[in-house]
Design a protein around this nucleic acid. Sequence first.
DNA 1: AATGTATTCAACCGCTCCCCG
DNA 2: GCGGGGAGCGGTTGAATACAT
Length: 276
Amino acid sequence: MGRAPCCSKVGLYRGPWTTKEDTLLIDYIQAHGEGHWRSLPKKAGLLRCGKSCRLRWMNYLRPDIKRGNITPDEDDLIIRLHSLLGNRWSLIAGRLPGRTDNEIKNYWNSHLSKRLKNSTAGNRSTCMGESAGKRSDAKASDKRKKKEDNEGICSRNGEAATKTKIYLPRATRVCTSSVAKYINNIQSMIGSSSRNAEDGDHTSWGMSGLKVANNGGQAWASNDEEFDGLVCDHDPSCPISLQKDIMLDDIFEEYQQLLKADDHGHLDSFVDSLLA
DNA sequence: AATGTATTCAACCGCTCCCCG
DNA sequence: GCGGGGAGCGGTTGAATACAT
């Protein structure tokens, strides 16, 4: 993109925030409100870039942030939403009052992805894993790597690791209008190819649409294992329409199952809120 | 007790989207 | 319609801490 990151400006502090900086930021925002992050540091007397200020406020200083452990309910909801939305942490965080996208992302990477990996390890190899979990792998000791190899967790003699490559989506901002576009596309897709779905049933587009839409442009699957072999988006010879045809029925079924299991009604209300 | 390893989480980075002129 | 700037997002990093040997 060419534009240099604002943090590269000389003279700006980086790293952990001090109490004094926190106080300055809080005081300023309490007095003037959020926004205008670019100019905020200067006005607030902070030697930080706007991005850094925004992040600090959003992830740590905001008064409505809930500290403490993720409850089992939240844990469950995160898993469900992730199966629906993939790594759209901000959307997921939007359904968990007081939780930040960063917190949920960290929680997922450190707890849930590992747990889910283990739970599916018996069924199939999951070594294609998410890039977000890459670091723990990279940083893992030789000892641990050897252990995993011995357990066959991530490399069936090193074959699987090289055979299948999953391309994860780039970071894209999801705003209301994007979601609306998403939904329109999805509804038209479902309408034409999933005639087994009940007409007018608003739940019919959710899971399928999200997954198809995400795979339409870039190979992606939140449950990557489930889409093994369909990761052909980067192959020009594999037209998107074909992928849709292949996946829609399976995806729709998966979504219906998810809805059945959704005894709290979170998914329905979530879907409704997106449509609103 | 010392050392090595694994985990957690705040913060940074690069990219993309949206808005406005 | 186009381009630039601000804002937001997800991925990644690194330091601190916890845990294991």
